[in-house]
């Protein structure tokens, strides 16, 4: 049992930066950024490559920069070339497949066999005992959460938030919305890249298809977190990303362990959960309309009779 909790916490924190990135792009900027899947693998590929070259620590900022570049491409396609945001993300994502292969020296997976990773380096110091991976992943994730909250309260952060809220007002405040969208997407994808970087070094390997569907899983995490914590404030949103990610991994671990659902079925369930959660307001409205219609008919009927 303890093992399940430990693994869930590890994976929860390692992957939490992806829902945090989606919080920034999808909730704050109101842009569905589908760069995520490819960007996650890019981060992993860069960090594993650096680790193989003997620079596991340097691989982390490098992966973030690579992620930010991917975000920049999507933002450029969207803001300057006027490609709809969803399509811009898909285009970048498709291109990234080749870029990722290139980073992985044209092989479909890359493994660290002997060189140290940041996890093995921490393990060697003996810090944290058996929980060293949880501690490192949690520390990085929480620091990023605090940095993101601080950033969103700065003047630049305020303009990014207003961009998703009322883009006309941003222009009226002498801020270029193209700039705020670009900065927002760069930061979001840097976070996704960082998550990929941590996962790559944690698993000692990265696979070219390792990011498939991660955007939907991350959305599910964000929605789970928001359901638990509420989505009133910015602060809650950031913590919701982490909380949701941990809860999702606990559910995942329980499913793996108890086999109530075959593990292969989990992506379908995730997809259904996300679709239902996002459709929830519409379903509620439809139900209310049905009810009103039924009541109206009944009343109309009595009046006629």
């Amino acid at each position: 049992m303890l093992y399940i909790v430990k693994t869930a916490l590890e994976l929860g924190f390692l992957y939490a930066l992806v829902p945090m990135a989606l919080f920034l792009s999808f909730r704050v900027l109101d842009i569905a950024d589908l760069t995520t899947d490819g960007c996650f693998v890019l981060g992993g590929a860069v960090s594993v490559s650096f680790a193989l070259a003997g620079h596991p620590i340097l691989g982390i900022p490098a992966a973030m920069i690579a992620g930010a570049c991917a975000g920049f491409v999507t933002a450029f396609l969207h803001t300057h070339l006027k490609i709809p945001a969803i399509l811009a993300g898909i285009i970048t994502n498709t291109g990234l497949y080749t870029v990722n292969l290139m980073v992985m020296k044209w092989s479909s997976n890359l493994s660290i066999l002997k060189t140290p990773t940041m996890f093995s380096m921490l393990k060697d110091t003996g810090f944290g005992g058996a929980w060293y991976q949880v501690i490192l992943a949690a520390a990085i994730t929480v620091v990023m959460a605090l940095l993101l909250m601080w950033f969103l309260s700065t003047r630049l952060g305020l303009s990014i938030r207003a961009t998703g809220d009322n883009i006309d007002m941003v222009r009226a405040s002498s801020v270029n919305p193209r700039f705020t969208i670009t900065v927002g997407l760069c930061i979001a994808n840097a976070l996704t890249g960082l998550s990929g970087a941590m996962v790559g070094q944690y698993q000692n390997t990265i696979d070219i298809n390792g990011g498939t569907g991660i955007v939907v899983i991350a959305l599910a995490c964000l929605i789970i977190g928001e359901t638990v914590l509420g989505r009133r404030s910015l602060r809650k949103g950031v913590w919701a990303a982490i909380t949701g990610s941990v809860i999702y991994r606990i559910i995942y671990a329980v499913v793996l362990y108890t086999k109530v659902v075959p593990v292969q079925g989990l992506k379908l369930i995730t997809a259904i959960v996300v679709a239902l959660a996002i459709a929830f307001p519409t379903i509620k409205e439809w139900a209310a309309f049905r009810k009103a219609k039924k009541n109206g008919n009944r009343k109309g009927g009595t009046a006629n009779a």
Partner: peptide, 18 residues
């Protein structure tokens, strides 16, 4: 059209003050 609804009064003013 002139204000950002999910941001506070203070934050809206801060934006205008930019």
């Amino acid at each position: 059209k002139g204000t950002a609804p999910s941001m506070s009064i203070e934050e809206n003013l801060a934006l205008a003050y930019l």
